[in-house]
Design a protein around this nucleic acid. Structure first.
Lengths: 150, 150
DNA sequence: TTGTGTGCAAACGATTTGCAGTACC
DNA sequence: GGTACTGCAAATCGTTTGCACACAA
């Protein structure tokens, strides 16, 4: 991923909206872009505070909402009561495999599934705007750990 | 759906757990079984209170959790901040089409999608326990209403 | 100086829990 | 008479908001 390009994109969008580029926004964006995907606010705040300890919850929430509006971040809800965020790369839509044991998240994309979804939807007279597909299960590592215990 | 059978199932499970069959639990179960699917707690409470006005929020929450444990109800989260519940019939798993305009929910099942999901998962070394597939879009009625407005 | 942005703390909405009173065996 | 159940209100958790202060054009 091109960090420089994402930053430029953000600053351009800020300009369009008549908003300012502050150090807090820059810090949060930088941490966001460098971190691995799918963290929650708490995790992100912890990382941001390593760089700038005086940043508050509210700023992180507000900035992530901004990043989402600007098409740089994307909100995800995996049903554990917390919103998670991931990078919104220009790539094709992807879905998630989630390990119930370790919480690990793997991304995948499959156009045959997408095609079948559209088919099902149109059969019901729906025009699909977006969708959510999550597969919850046990990943290879956790499965083999479990086997060893026996 | 066989209401009688579901009630018997609930009372049997209550017995197994050493819990009592109270009038509140019976009222909530009855309203739950007779109502159409996918309501939230608020809606269910309103319906229950028509039958028994003295029932409180907490009892509805507690009873629905019980029904879920007993395999009679199933929790659903469509991302609007409220948990919804639906009947857990013995039928095959199904997924949802959700209209972004009117909030209408249509169920569907498609074994070819399920098969592809398993294929994707095993390619990533996952054993799938359960999954969630939701298609968000505009239903036929809302689309035609929208066309008329133009 | 005239804002917008920030940090704090208080507000919020959905859900859970503590507890005193209630009802059933 | 004891124990599980209920209803209320208070607590909780993630998130949002109001407001006074800080800071940059």
């Amino acid at each position: 991923m091109d960090i420089r390009a994402e930053k430029d994109k953000f600053y351009a969008k800020l300009g369009e909206k008549g908003l300012k580029a502050t150090t807090q926004r820059a810090d949060i964006l930088d941490v966001f872009l460098r971190s691995k995907q799918h963290f929650n606010i708490e995790g992100l705040l912890a990382m941001v505070r390593r760089k700038n300890p005086r940043i508050g919850y509210a700023t992180v929430y507000r900035t992530l909402k901004l990043l989402t509006e600007c098409g740089i971040a994307c909100e995800r809800d995996f049903g554990d009561g917390q919103t998670r965020y991931e990078h919104m790369t220009g790539d094709a839509h992807h879905d998630h495999l989630i390990c119930l044991e370790c919480g690990g998240i793997v991304e995948f994309e499959n156009e045959r599934i997408e095609a079948l979804q559209d088919e099902v939807a149109s059969r019901h007279g729906f025009e699909v705007m977006h969708h959510k597909l999550e597969l919850y299960g046990i990943c290879r590592q956790c499965a083999s750990k479990r086997d060893k215990k026996r």
